[in-house]
Design a protein around this nucleic acid. Structure first.
Length: 202
DNA sequence: CGTACGATCTGCT
DNA sequence: GCAGATCGTACGA
């Protein structure tokens, strides 16, 4: 049985717990006329105005970060290093800029399309490892910034994929050395390859 | 208006 | 392991 993640889910007050819970959930996109879906294998939490690694640190509100202050359940997509789109899920209630960055996925449906988008000819374990690759495979770009995740373009579901607790790795976040001591926070969650394969093959 | 740089990936060494 | 690609955003002048 499959359940689409609803508004209540995204309104969770605990962004770190949510980031962990999203491991093993399924993300679907209906973009450019193609349906794709993939298991979420890696996430990072960005905990609002007190988190130095967050774009909303210190309560910063700009045209770009305004999206993060919306009510949970929408997408925050932005360009990084001038060439990669990064996909985040905005969580918590309005005016609390929490978000979860999706850093890794593993393709389930629409694999042919994803291979084309990645310019690859075969499926590998690491095809969806890395936040820039996630958006590339799923076809997400800045057009999808601020869209609802309760609609039929991008949405998430719980397919009862059972990831063993001990297959989830908790670590510090990546690429945020500028965040001082907050760079050390255990806000990154990922499932190891073995745990992932075990969950898919049943 | 100018400028510095980033929640990265790839290919070459 | 490292440099290069490449550009919107943020912020100071």
């Amino acid at each position: 049985m499959s359940t689409v993640l609803n508004k209540k889910y995204y309104l969770s007050k605990d962004v770190v717990k949510l980031a962990k819970d999203l491991i093993g959930k399924v993300i679907h996109t209906n973009i450019d006329g193609v349906l794709t879906s993939a298991i979420i294998t890696e996430t990072e939490a960005y905990a609002g105005i007190t988190d130095k690694a967050s774009h909303a640190y210190g309560g910063r509100r700009t045209q770009r970060t305004e999206v993060m202050y919306s009510e949970g359940g929408i997408a925050y997509v932005y360009l990084c290093y001038g060439m990669h789109y990064l996909f985040n899920i905005v969580t918590n209630k309005k005016d609390i800029p929490h978000a979860v960055l999706i850093r890794g996925i593993y393709p389930l449906k629409g694999i042919e399309t994803m291979l084309q988008r990645a310019h690859k000819n075969k499926l590998t374990k690491d095809i969806g490892k890395g936040p820039g690759k996630v958006t590339k495979l799923l076809g997400i770009d800045k057009r999808h910034n601020a869209i609802s995740l309760l609609d039929n373009t991008i949405w998430l579901s719980d397919e009862n994929i059972n990831i063993k607790k001990n297959a989830i790795i908790v670590s510090k976040r990546i690429g945020i050395d500028y965040a001082g001591e907050d760079a050390l926070l255990p806000y990154r969650f990922s499932v190891n390859d073995e745990g992932l394969i075990n969950s898919i093959n049943k």
